[in-house]
Each structure stands twice: as structure tokens, then as C-alpha cells.
Amino acid sequence: MRPDQLLHPTPKGLYCPVSDFYIDPVQPVDRALITHGHADHARSGHHSVWATEQTLDIMAIRYGEEFCSERHVANLRETFVLNGVTIGFWPAGHVLGSAQILVEHQGLRIVASGDYKRRRDPSCLSFEPVPCDVFITEATFALPVFRHPDDVGEIQKLLSSVQQFPESAHLVGVYALGKAQRLISLIREAGHNKTIFIHGALKKLCDYYETQGVELGPLSSATLAKGEKGDFAGSIVMGPPSAFTDKWARRFPDPIICFASGWMQVRQRARQRGVELPLILSDHCDWDELLDTILEIKPREVWVTHGRDDALVRWCELNQIKARPLHLVGYEDESE
């Protein structure tokens, strides 16, 4: 069996004709396997959904309990059979609940890794390599310029700026699922125990992480009742980046705009967005980690989903590894 007979790209997403399911479909389908809860991968409106329990919980938080008709919990590191095809979910290290999906049929093993990273993340399980014939990788940061520095140093940048500018509020732009909770965990690990103020968009997911055993320390709402005056000087405030360009941000004294993202590696990106303190912190692999992962798993073939596939495919060619871009559409390049 050729690999693309088992799994191939379609406008709705990666499709398995043998078993009739999609992985991370971008349009409503009958049967969907979901790698993780980010909005471009996990959409509402499918009939049956297979995902880890945490991903299903996150989808319910974001879309309401009616986000699909049938939920199927996939236990990590276990396999089950769906219409004759063996399926398994393994931790991907991207956000809480994220998983790679193994699809196995007639001895052919394909792993769709979804989004993943290799760094330690105190807010989710680490990536586990799964032997396979075809490894489907993301390529969000697949350029040799993306080399994420050590997390500890980035957190230190933030904390020393908070000390240096005590009259300011540091407004940190974060993605509501994953990045926010990871950043808070890392700040706590660095010994900062003061209250962190969060935008309303982060609250439900932070609460959920706490129920899953991820301790986030004292958090408080950054949104005030009308007429109320908050004292935000010297504090860290987190919210979606869009909130900081909105009127919402005017309550904060001498704000310093920060943004926690892998894109912050490139100065011009930071400047364009008006970011004063870029924190290079990503939930995706950097260039080195992508290559390390491919070299570690040693698949016969690499398929590249969304992102900068040209550089990764080029590197594979140079290293005599068979590779092809899938040109999947509907996943956000800027998904940080």
C-alpha cells in the first residue's frame, strides 16, 4: 500500500479513505480526529470526534457542550481500531491535551504530529517520538533563522524589565490556550509570586488548567467594573495581543507592550507590531528541533503540512530524506 492511499490531503484536511475519517478537518465532517484544541485545528460542527480527554474538554469550553454529536475519548499511548485502521494518540508537547496521531494499516505506519515542540513545558506532557514510516510534520518555524533561545533567559528579560520600570504595567500578548499558562508557569518557576492580571479571554482556560493540576498561582481579572480604578503599576498583565491595541488597554499606566511568540525572533516583526519587549517563547519546534526530530524518528518519508515547507523540504533533500509538501490550507501561519 502506498502511503497516500492511507492518508492524503484534501481541501477539508488530511483524509483517510480506508477508514473514512479526517485529521484536524477545517470544515464540518462526519468523523474527525483532532490533535489539539487550537481553533484552526479543532473546529466545531463535526458529527463524531476522537481526541484526548483534555482536548475534548477544551473544545467544550470554547464551543459549548454541543460542539459535536459524539465524543470519543482517546487514551494516550493506547491504540484502537476504527474501520479496520489502527489509531493511537501520543503526547505532542504543544499544549495541554495535544497529541500526535498514529494511523496504521497493513504494516504501514503514518504519524500526523499536529503542532508539536520538544522543549520542557511545565503545563503539558512532553513530546514522545513514535516510530513510523511517514512522519507528518508542521513547519511553522522551519527556517534556519528560528532558533528559540532558552526559556529561562526570556522570562528573566521580562522580570528584569518589571524591576527596571516599576511605574509601568507590562502588557504581555499571549495565545489564550497554552502560551498563557506556560508563560505563567515559567514566571512562577522563576520565583515571581505576585498576582498576575489576566484578560477575560484567558480566564476559563486558566481555570481549566488548574483543574488538570497545573498550578498558576494568584491570578486576578484585569477587567474592571465601570468607574473602578485599578492599580496596575509594576504588574504583569496578560491578554490576547489584539486587546492591547484596543481601548481596553488604556486603563494601564505607562504600558510596555510585550509579546510572547516565536515570531519575536525577528526584530522587524517585533517593530512592525509595536512590541517593545519581545519574548521569544514558542509552542512550536524551532529549526533545530524540527531537524533533530526527523533525524531521531528516521522515517522513510517526511510530509510537511503548513508553514515554511520549502526550507524544510530543501534540508531533507540535502540529507537524502524523501520529503514532500502537502500544501494543506486553513491552518494559520501566525498561529501563535
Binding site: 527556517l143 534556519p144 533563522v145 525577528v266 515554511r308 520549502d310 526550507a311 530543501r314 534540508w315 540535502l318
Partner: peptide
């Protein structure tokens, strides 16, 4: 590799 450098330079 020249191609990888060029892709990088174009991006940055």
C-alpha cells in the same frame, strides 16, 4: 547551503 541562506535572508 545557498538556498537555505537565501530563504532565510529573504524572510528577515
Amino acid at each position: 547551503d545557498e538556498v537555505l541562506f537565501k530563504l532565510s535572508y529573504d524572510y528577515v
